[in-house]
Write a protein that binds this DNA or RNA. Structure first.
Lengths: 216, 216
DNA sequence: TTTTGATTAAAACATGCGTTTAAATCAATA
DNA sequence: TATTGATTTAAACGCATGTTTTAATCAAAA
């Protein structure tokens, strides 16, 4: 009667969005069940269809919600006037933090990762609204670090950077099994970010050398 | 009556294994349906339970079959007396070829990749029989390239190499969408392998420099 | 207080799934 | 040829799913 009603005051619709984000991120669209989502949201099974029409529309609603949420977080690392090296380091740190930190709505980035490998019709707008902008930033950093190299090589370098990071997400189960070093990734985000940054800086400069040489 | 009976002569059991490998690799265990597998194998729905007991046992049978198959392919790159650089290049080429080439049973490596990110109880033996041995080879190469660096750093370098390669598998849908450069990966395996090799050689030597410096 | 529209609740529906059953078919043997 | 055991087939079973239905409940307006 006093307080503690914060959750209960919340619209059912809102609770469904949060629960659905979690479950969709954990299990994927097909594997997620309306019943689990509703249980988690403390709502009736029919709530999904009442508030969103059906499961698929709930999924896209979760995506819209998750993207607006993402906009409110610090993004697109730092001012463009910082040295490219620092901007790469910051890019990697933010990316890995988002991917591995179990913070509040951690499911946003897990959902993104899932769309990358098991796309639904939500992927196209996701690419346009979130992925391509970030990739452009990264490619700009690479270009600045490497100097005059073909766009194809810029793309491959960016892929190398992103691939190293996503590996800790996609292959997490096997990494845990294969080496105790990777047992608790969440607590070593900074160390991993540092490694990826150094490794990549060197890799990029190798490409720079290679294509500078070819041109002379 | 003459020939052309090669397929029909094949045991139903065998056809089920091949069909199941394909379907499990494409859709994952839960998402794959016994009915699709049987349709693809030209068998009755009850065939799975008659020959394997149930869906789960079929899955592990596919895994055993796929592993014995893998043993018959050239593995563990080259003699140990080759320079570490060459051995890394060969490792990367084989890994990427297996992952991206649509050759005969291409589903073996796709199945492995799936187990890495969405493990079942099959993962443990998969790690012991296939993943750890290959990882050991890679780490040995890294150690030889980098000289005296902490095991932790060796592990991270190996993760960087593998991550770059798996990226082209896991993020393939989004790569296709994001840049025409990645439209037809299958036909650029050699180019990608070359990039990953150069990028990684440089990254590894950066780690070597860093930790040599620290020790002096 | 009564009424009204929005929301929730319980139950049922249709569908697709893994699995089982029981009969039909086949291939080898006696 | 007749018999027997292995294999295949068609049909059904039980269960979980997404969705719909119908009634109950609630909150605000009349």
């Amino acid at each position: 009667m006093i307080a503690m009603e914060d959750d209960i005051l919340n619209d059912t619709r809102q609770r469904l969005l949060d629960a659905a984000g979690e479950v969709f991120a954990d299990r994927g669209f097909e594997q997620a069940t309306v019943r689990e989502i509703c249980r988690k949201a403390g709502a009736n099974v029919a709530a999904v269809n009442y508030h969103f029409g059906n499961k698929r529309k709930l999924y896209t609603a979760v995506f819209d919600y998750s993207q607006t949420w993402a906009d409110n977080r610090i993004d697109l690392p730092a001012a463009t006037d910082a040295p490219a090296e620092d901007r790469l380091r910051e890019f990697v740190r933010q990316f890995l933090r988002r991917l591995l930190d179990p913070g509040r709505p951690s499911w946003h980035d897990r959902l993104m990762a899932r769309e990358m490998s098991e796309p639904t019709e939500a992927l196209k707008t996701l690419v346009d609204d979130e992925i391509r902008p970030r990739l452009t930033v990264l490619q700009e950093i690479v270009r600045e670090l490497a100097g005059e190299i073909p766009p194809r090589v810029v793309a491959k370098c960016a892929a190398s950077v992103v691939g190293q990071m996503l590996h800790y997400h996609f292959a997490r189960p096997v990494l845990k099994l294969v080496s105790p070093i990777f047992a608790d990734l969440e607590e070593h985000v900074e160390e991993l970010a540092d490694h990826v940054t150094r490794f990549s800086l060197s890799g990029i400069s190798a490409m720079s050398d290679r294509y500078r040489k070819d041109r002379l």
